[in-house]
Design a binder for these strands. Structure first.
Length: 273
DNA sequence: CACGAGACCTGTTCGC
DNA sequence: TGCGAACAGGTCTCGT
């Protein structure tokens, strides 16, 4: 579920409205799946986080950041994670992995059926985020910088765009969508992308991410999030269905062990394989 | 350096 | 109906 637009939606929901967790003190921590904790030890985690106040919630790439009085709690949702606030009175679900009991009969719940999600509690978030690439929606990330980074790599575009060191926040859905919108083949070698194509690709990345955020993310399968971008997908999980641009059947291949969807007509390899 | 396979996990859907 | 295989929004590690 969680790529940049889904994490952004989650962070906004946690910061706004009557169930906002911002400004609330943490009364207790319940670590229900200790292996999801990267650092520190479970004992230190519970001791250290209690009594801290959540001063803000933010996002970097696919990480959710909870800024506390003296530390930062980072959560990565991986494949199936979700974060939300809920009344303390509700029963604890089967897939709850971390619960932070807050002031005001509210709690922050980290729910993750597949247990891939990870948690860090650190003094300096940079220790966790150090290797992340540029934020695709940041104003200072220019097409020139993007193309210069593309030029430095001989990798195929699809796996490269999924690499969080290259660019932060893209996942399988939005990468396929962006490549289709830009009309570029997922197997194009990054360094062969022209200046015009690089500009088109960055614009496409920003467009699909922005629309994803505007639609509160993509809800597929049983991992429901409340977004509706799934009703506006062009190629993702539409194998065999007509391309919205030209009508040719959408093709599915496997790249780097990830299902990759594209239109062989619109996204041809052209002359540069 | 780039790529593929395997690992980490649970749940759903598909084909026979 | 049952049952195994394939597949799923991610990322790390290892071997070639």
């Amino acid at each position: 579920m969680p790529e940049l637009p889904e994490v952004e939606t989650i962070v906004r929901n946690l910061s706004q409205g009557g169930t906002s967790i911002v400004g609330r003190r943490i009364l207790a921590a319940r670590l229900l799946w200790p292996r999801g904790l990267e650092t520190p030890s479970p004992t230190e985690f519970e001791q250290r986080i209690v009594a801290q106040v959540i001063t803000a919630v933010s996002r970097r790439g696919k990480f959710a950041l909870f800024h506390l009085t003296s530390d930062t709690l980072l959560v990565h949702l991986r494949m199936s994670g979700d974060l939300f606030s809920e009344p303390t009175t509700l029963p604890v679900g089967r897939h709850h992995r971390l619960i932070l009991d807050l002031e005001g009969e509210l709690r922050l719940a980290f729910v993750d059926p597949r247990k891939f999600g990870r948690i860090w509690l650190v003094a300096d978030p940079a220790t966790v985020l150090r290797k992340l690439g540029p934020e695709p929606l940041a104003a200072d990330f220019s097409p020139q910088i993007f193309q210069q980074r593309l030029r430095q790599s001989r990798r195929q575009l699809k796996p490269l765009l999924l690499d969080q060191c290259f660019i932060a926040g893209l996942g399988n859905i939005y990468t396929d969508e962006a490549l289709h919108l830009a009309k570029i083949h997922p197997q194009r070698i990054a360094a062969t992308v022209s200046e015009a194509e690089a500009e088109r690709l960055l614009r496409a990345i920003r467009q699909v991410l922005s629309e994803g955020i505007r639609r509160s993310g993509t809800s597929i399968d049983w991992v429901y999030r409340g977004g509706d971008f799934q009703n506006h997908l062009r190629v993702y999980q539409r194998t065999g269905q007509p391309c919205p641009e030209c009508g040719a059947p959408v093709q599915r291949i496997s790249l780097g062990q990830r299902g990759t969807h594209f239109c062989p007509q619109c996204q041809s390899m052209g002359n540069s394989p």
